[in-house]
C-alpha cells in the first residue's frame, strides 16, 4: 500500500519536475574527484579541503581535477600537477621524504620508546613487590584523618 502511494507520488511528481541532476556528469569521475579533493588543501580558505571549500579558486581547481580525471590521468599525475604549482602545501597527507621522515616515524618511535620505558618500569616494580606492602594501615589512617575537617597537619 505504502509503496503504491510512493509510486503514485513519484509519477505525479515527475510530471512537473525531475530527478535532480548531479553537479558532475559522470558519477565515477565525481567519486574520484571527491576522494582526491578530500585530501587536498584549499589555498584560499586554508583550513578546508578542496572538496569542502566554496572559494572560487577551489571551484576552478575542482574543474581542473575533473578534467584531468576525464583525461584518464593517474592520481599521481594529478597530484604532481598541483604540487608543481602550489608545493607540498596542498597535500593534507604529507609525502614521505627526508624532511618528513620524523613526522611519519615519530609516533611509532615514541611508541617504541614508551614501550621500552614501560617494560623497564614494570620489571623494576616487580622487584619491589615483595619488599614492602603498598599503603600501610598507618598511612590509611593518616589519609582518613587528613580528610576529616578541622585537622591541620603539623
Amino acid at each position: 500500500m505504502n509503496w503504491l502511494f510512493f509510486l503514485l507520488l513519484l509519477v505525479a511528481g515527475s510530471a512537473w519536475a525531475g530527478e535532480a541532476k548531479p553537479m558532475g556528469d559522470d558519477p565515477a569521475v565525481e567519486a574520484r574527484l571527491k576522494q582526491l579533493a578530500g585530501e587536498l588543501r584549499c589555498l584560499v580558505c586554508q583550513n578546508q579541503t578542496l572538496a569542502d571549500s566554496n572559494a572560487p579558486l577551489a571551484e576552478d581547481l575542482r574543474r581542473e581535477v575533473r578534467e584531468m580525471i576525464a583525461k584518464n590521468m593517474s592520481d599521481r599525475e594529478i597530484i604532481d600537477f598541483l604540487v608543481s604549482r602550489y608545493g607540498d602545501f596542498v597535500l593534507y597527507r604529507p609525502p614521505l621524504k627526508t624532511t618528513t621522515v620524523l613526522l611519519w616515524a615519530g609516533p611509532f618511535v615514541l611508541l617504541i620508546g614508551g614501550g621500552v620505558a614501560l617494560a623497564v618500569t614494570l620489571r623494576r616494580r616487580q622487584r619491589v613487590i615483595v619488599e614492602n606492602a603498598v599503603i600501610t594501615d598507618e598511612e590509611h589512617r593518616r589519609v582518613e584523618r587528613l580528610l576529616s575537617p578541622g585537622v591541620k597537619e603539623s
Partner: peptide, 27 residues
C-alpha cells in the same frame, strides 16, 4: 605526543626553512 608532533611539524619545518607542508586528517 603524536598529535603534538603533527600539529607543530609544519611550524618546525618552516622555522628551519625546509618548506611549507600541511599535516591534515589523512595523517
Amino acid at each position: 605526543g603524536a598529535v603534538l608532533l603533527g600539529t607543530l611539524y609544519p611550524l618546525f619545518l618552516d622555522a628551519l626553512d625546509l618548506g611549507k607542508i600541511s599535516v591534515g586528517p589523512p595523517y
